[in-house]
Design a protein around this nucleic acid. Structure first.
Length: 161
DNA sequence: ACTAAGATTACCT
DNA sequence: GGTAATCTTAGTA
């Protein structure tokens, strides 16, 4: 969920991708430096980076301290605050499909990099939810390295809204 | 200092 | 289906 700007929005994740430190396609590949520092912190932190100079992408750090592991949030289904998302996105469909769109819908920007997703006081938090009954794994999207590992997970009930 | 490429999206034909 | 928009990081000189 997110309460950025005092407006509550909430989505159920339908698509994620895993990135590990020993993964050539990962920002954490080669060790901690610059923007990826957060990936080496403790689990439950938010890692935000800019993509193609235009979009924000959000990750959840999930490895032990010192290991650069994170999960990229690619898509979600609107659960609450739909009006806010429509206004932020300027459209009423595909509100949170795609990494950049998801961040825009939730109001996530680079300022939130390093946010503790497990702290009740944080503007952006991770809440327990029900795992999708069925999901498929596929090659990851938008990268040119290590495309043979199928670490993109898509919920079968994912729908465009 | 300079150049190239990138975990993308929206708009054009 | 193709491409422009736009900025940060990494590699080279």
């Amino acid at each position: 969920m997110s309460s950025v700007g005092g407006e509550h929005t909430e989505i159920a994740l339908t698509e994620v991708e895993a990135y590990r430190q020993d993964d050539p396609a990962s920002h954490s590949f080669g060790g901690p430096r610059g923007r990826n520092m957060i990936m080496f912190e403790r689990s439950g932190l938010l890692y935000v980076y800019r993509s193609y100079g235009i979009h924000w992408c959000a990750n959840v750090v999930c490895g032990p301290v010192g290991v650069g592991t994170a999960v990229l949030l690619r898509s979600g289904r609107p659960v609450a605050g739909r009006e806010t998302m429509v206004r932020r996105r300027g459209r009423s469909t595909n509100l949170a499909t795609g990494p950049g769109n998801l961040c825009q819908a939730l109001g996530i920007t680079g300022e939130l990099n390093g946010t503790d997703l497990l702290d009740e006081k944080s503007p952006v938090r991770l809440l327990p939810g029900t795992a999708p009954a069925k999901f498929v794994s596929t090659p990851r999207i938008g990268i040119s390295k290590a495309i043979d590992v199928r670490w993109r997970f898509v919920a079968q009930d994912a729908e465009k809204h």
